[in-house]
Structures are given as structure tokens and as C-alpha cells.
Design a protein around this nucleic acid. Structure first.
Length: 216
DNA sequence: GCCACCGGTGGC
DNA sequence: GCCACCGGTGGC
């Protein structure tokens, strides 16, 4: 039997590095330790408000009296995520890729299948499920959502290809990211933004992987 | 040659 | 007007 050797070969790089959710009571940001936990919270945030108390499950000492885990300043790129996105089925990955600043879109969502195939849309997904029933037992399309987050800083996206040719040294959006969830209390944000999830990245990163090594 | 990334567009 | 979908392509 061939192992999953091939799986490690393809590197799938998630833009989001950090996840945070806002306490519905004190409005402070609490970091979420894992993507899995974050997805669990995100799925049910509307029904179950997130509180600092919730974070005690992994951080017993935390309370509303403590300072926010993260400051909402511009050292990060923040994006609002959507609630009710289903938890990713076991064996699959839901990947968020943030695009470079100044483009026409903010982010792409895709799923990586148990056989390490990258799917870009519901069309591709349902085709895959049909063609690989043995890999997709107990899985159906209601468990998937390609809904991307939106940038908190709307200037991140160029509204449209404009005549103004700005020669930005367009930095790759790759960086440390933080995905965070606002409290679900109010239904409308400032300009009727639909939900209150956020993603953050740090400032510019030189390039993917460039930082890691001191060379050799 | 592959595939990550981006823009175009058709359907709503 | 928006956005889901997918084709093109540039960089590896």
C-alpha cells in the first residue's frame, strides 16, 4: 500500500497564522490556540456567544479583567470572517490565501482533499465527491463553504482597475495572520458589514520562506 | 510542465 | 453590482 508520502510533498500554505475572537461581554480579543478550535467557535458563534470564560478551557486564568490579547492596530491585516462556516471534515483542510494588496480580490478559500487535491469551487468539490466516494464517506457538500473573509481595511482592495497606475511595490500579503471573531451581538457593523470575524496579518514579509534560513 | 495566483465574466 | 467560477500565465 502506498503511504501518504505524496501528501507531504505538496506544501499548502495557510495565510492565517493567528486566530482571535472577541468576547461578547468585555469586547477584548482572545487568541484561539488552534485553527480547529477556531472553526468550532466560528460555526456556532451565533448560537453560543464567545466569552472570556470560554477561553478558560485552554487558559484557566483568563478573565474579562485581563487586557486584550491583541491590539487592533495596523501592524496586522485584519479581515472579517463569516460565522456559521461549517467545521472542516476530518482529513480535509480549509485553506485561506490572502491575495496581494491592491488587487481585485482579497482572499481565496480552497479545500485540500484527503488525497491532497486542491479544490477551488463547489463545482469542483461536488465533482470530486462524486468521483471519489470511497474517500468521501460521510461527507457532503453542506460541510463546505468557500465564503472568504472581507478585509477590515477596505483600501486593501483596489475597487476596480483604475487608470491610476500606482507603482506600488506590491508586497505579498503573506505574513502572520490573525483571524478573529467579533461578538455576535449586533447584527450590523459600521456600514452594514455582515459579520464580525477578522483576520490579521503582520506587516510586510520579504518573501515566503525567505526569513526562515540564514542561508548556507 | 506544474500550479499558485490573479483577473475576467456570466449569471444572478 | 456582486461574486462564484475558472482560464491564463508567470515563476518556479
Amino acid at each position: 500500500m502506498e503511504q501518504e508520502q505524496a501528501i507531504g510533498a505538496k506544501r499548502v500554505w495557510e495565510s492565517v497564522k493567528l486566530y482571535t475572537v472577541k468576547c461578547a461581554k468585555c469586547s477584548k480579543w482572545r487568541l484561539i490556540p488552534t485553527k480547529e478550535k477556531y472553526e468550532e467557535i466560528r460555526e456556532r458563534i451565533v448560537e453560543r456567544s464567545f466569552l472570556c470564560d470560554t477561553a478558560r478551557a485552554w487558559r484557566p486564568s483568563v478573565s474579562c479583567n485581563e487586557e486584550s490579547d491583541v491590539k487592533q492596530d495596523d501592524s496586522f491585516l485584519w479581515a472579517m470572517d463569516k460565522p456559521r462556516i461549517p467545521q472542516t471534515p476530518p482529513g480535509w483542510q480549509r485553506i485561506l490565501r490572502i491575495r496581494a494588496e491592491g488587487g481585485t480580490k482579497f482572499a481565496d478559500v480552497y479545500y485540500v482533499t484527503p488525497s491532497n487535491k486542491r479544490l477551488r469551487s463547489m463545482v469542483e468539490l461536488s465533482r470530486y465527491i462524486n468521483e471519489h466516494p470511497h474517500l468521501c464517506e460521510g461527507v457532503n457538500i453542506s460541510q463546505f463553504s468557500f465564503q472568504p473573509p472581507v478585509p477590515l481595511d477596505e483600501k486593501y482592495i483596489a475597487k476596480r482597475a483604475r487608470s491610476t497606475t500606482h507603482d506600488t511595490s506590491s508586497t505579498p500579503a503573506a505574513g502572520f495572520m490573525m483571524l478573529s471573531l467579533d461578538s455576535p451581538e449586533r447584527e450590523t457593523f459600521n456600514d452594514g458589514l455582515p459579520s464580525r470575524w477578522f483576520v490579521q496579518t503582520t506587516e510586510k514579509m520579504p518573501a515566503e520562506g525567505a526569513v526562515a534560513a540564514d542561508d548556507d
